[in-house]
Amino acid sequence: MALHMIKLCVGAANVGELLDWRKTHDPDSPWIMRTRQTPKRAAEMVEGGSLYRVFKGVILCRQAILQVNTVGEGVNARCEVTLDETPVRVAPTPRRAFQGWRYLEPKDVPPDLSIEAFGDVPTELARQLREAGAW
């Protein structure tokens, strides 16, 4: 069973801003998310796992994890997580703030959204619909 990772997306308020950032920051190289700690369960994440991104307290998208590598040694060691280029939008799901990253079990992941069914729903509208129980 795949294991997922969840991480706050700092510097972007929504998926559109994340994609705009990607266009201006080395778009020809692989999409790599860097973090200090390498997950001990990295092999489980590479086998079908995704990185779920939290924007302003709400999970809005995920990207498939392609590879997890440790670079450097000792105190200079860092983790590089290679991601799929295409973020998949998920049902907006509230998530409290936390530091670093966390494992996300398959039972806790929000469902993917179908673009055909919902179109590009603004984050605030999606939040209000979820709070009202309509989504």
Rank of each mutant, 00 (worst) to 15 (best):
R78E: 15
C79R: 01
E80L: 10
T82L: 05
D84N: 15
D84R: 06
E85I: 09
T86S: 14
T86N: 12
P87S: 05
R89I: 06
V90Q: 01
V90F: 00
V90I: 04
A91Q: 13
A91S: 14
P92G: 12
P92Q: 12
P92H: 15
T93A: 10
T93S: 06
P94D: 12
P94V: 01
R95G: 00
R95V: 02
R96S: 15
R96I: 03
F98C: 03
R102Q: 14
R102T: 09
R102Y: 07
Y103C: 01
L104I: 10
E105W: 11
E105Y: 09
E105G: 02
K107R: 08
K107A: 11
D108A: 11
P110M: 00
P110T: 08
P110W: 07
L113Q: 05
S114V: 07
S114R: 12
S114A: 04
I115F: 14
I115L: 11
I115V: 12
E116W: 13
E116P: 00
A117K: 15
A117R: 14
A117W: 13
F118A: 04
F118C: 06
G119W: 07
G119R: 02
D120T: 08
V121I: 11
V121H: 00
P122A: 10
P122H: 08
T123V: 12
E124L: 08
E124N: 00
E124I: 00
L125C: 08
A126C: 02
A126W: 05
R127L: 02
